[in-house]
């Protein structure tokens, strides 16, 4: 079972079971493959790509295309770089090369706040892609109800359970990272008067 824990030294310790590591690695690699050919205009026909690089001007297709021309390449490169950073941490943990040990004795990954943001961004990209694969882009209530096993294919049910699980992981990570940031801003306030005296 995955878990995140805020530490007193401003990091988040993350734990994943081996099967969870494998699932995340696989999803993340699929995501990088999807972005390999980005910039090809026909790719925007893919709802996942269209959602990852949405129109910047809702009522102006020409301005949106121009914006994409200027930003999409770099934005895609940053998304892939972020994905690869997460993959490297997952792979290291899977090989038990740089893992840390959590207080309860389980192996984990130590994330800085910056690492944590990479993870949050990437988990978001994975969820946006999984949702698009389920045909969900802008229906605000699409995930309000439990999936209907009668209405969905086996593959859709699997995709939905991955979507829900990555969301659960992300919710835990947001909470842990907020704890770290809040603890950091409190201690910065406390040290404020001392540092202004120098």
């Amino acid at each position: 079972m995955s878990a995140f824990l805020a530490t007193t030294d401003g990091r988040v310790l993350a734990h994943f079971d081996e099967s969870e590591l494998e699932v995340l690695l696989s999803l993340s690699r699929q995501f990088c493959a999807l972005l390999a050919d980005v910039g090809n205009p026909s790719q925007l026909l893919d709802p996942a790509i269209a959602r990852l690089f949405p129109d910047a001007y809702r009522d102006d297709a020409a301005a949106s295309n121009e914006f994409r021309r200027y930003t999409q390449h770099d934005l895609a490169a940053r998304k892939v770089e972020t994905a690869e950073r997460v993959q490297a941490a997952l792979a290291d943990t899977a090989e038990r090369s740089v893992g840390v040990v959590l207080p309860d004795g389980r192996e984990g990954i130590a994330l800085s706040v910056e690492d944590g943001w990479s993870w949050l961004r990437h988990l978001t990209d994975l969820r946006l892609t999984l949702a698009a694969r389920l045909g969900v882009v802008d229906d605000a209530a699409a995930f309000d109800e439990e999936p209907d096993p009668e209405a969905l294919s086996e593959e859709e049910l699997l995709t939905r359970s991955l979507f829900d699980w990555v969301g659960y992981v992300q919710e835990l990570l947001v909470a842990a990272l907020e704890d770290v940031v809040d603890a950091g801003s409190t201690s910065a306030d406390e040290s404020g008067p001392a540092s202004t005296g120098r």
């Binding site: 959602r51 990852l52 949405p54 910047a56 001007y57 914006f67 949050l120 961004r121």
Partner: peptide
């Protein structure tokens, strides 16, 4: 605003300029 929108897209938020 274009910089902000690009940043929001980087976070995966659905943002636009008007």
């Amino acid at each position: 605003m274009e910089r902000h929108v690009e940043a929001m897209h980087g976070y995966g938020l659905w943002a636009s300029i008007a």
